[in-house]
């Protein structure tokens, strides 16, 4: 069974894919209030992800969760670059760097700029 990664689109990210074929693939959840793109991850690749990040897990809906922020950001960066959802191999090429970045996240994640 494949697993999934949900990539949430806030306004800033939405601007970056607006007008591309990806726009049609947006999933609207919670009455349209939450926009996301869903990347399918074949099982052997999701195993690699789980192995790389010790907190990562598959939730009850089959989504890969509790992965580092750096990993999630990388998934979106690759999507925006390729204008496609077929990006998991590209992300896995960066896995070593993302593991390193993820380790720092045990200590510090910059807070968002809101009041």
């Amino acid at each position: 069974m494949p697993h999934y990664i949900s990539v949430i689109l806030d306004d800033e990210r939405y601007e970056k894919i607006k007008g591309t074929p990806l726009e049609e693939k947006i999933t609207y959840l919670f009455g349209g209030q939450l926009k996301s793109l869903i990347v399918e991850v074949p099982e052997e690749k999701s195993e690699k992800i789980l192995k790389a990040f010790d907190k990562a897990r598959i939730d009850s809906r089959g989504y890969i969760e509790d992965v580092p922020v750096a990993f999630r950001r990388a998934v979106f960066e690759e999507i925006a670059k390729a204008k496609s959802l077929d990006v998991i191999d590209k992300v896995l090429e960066r896995l070593d760097d993302l593991v390193e970045a993820g380790k720092k996240e045990d200590e510090y994640i910059p807070p968002p700029e809101i009041e």
Partner: peptide, 10 residues
């Protein structure tokens, strides 16, 4: 963690 503002319905 990603710094995304959650929608109010969530």
């Amino acid at each position: 963690a990603e710094g995304v503002f959650p929608p109010r319905v969530v």
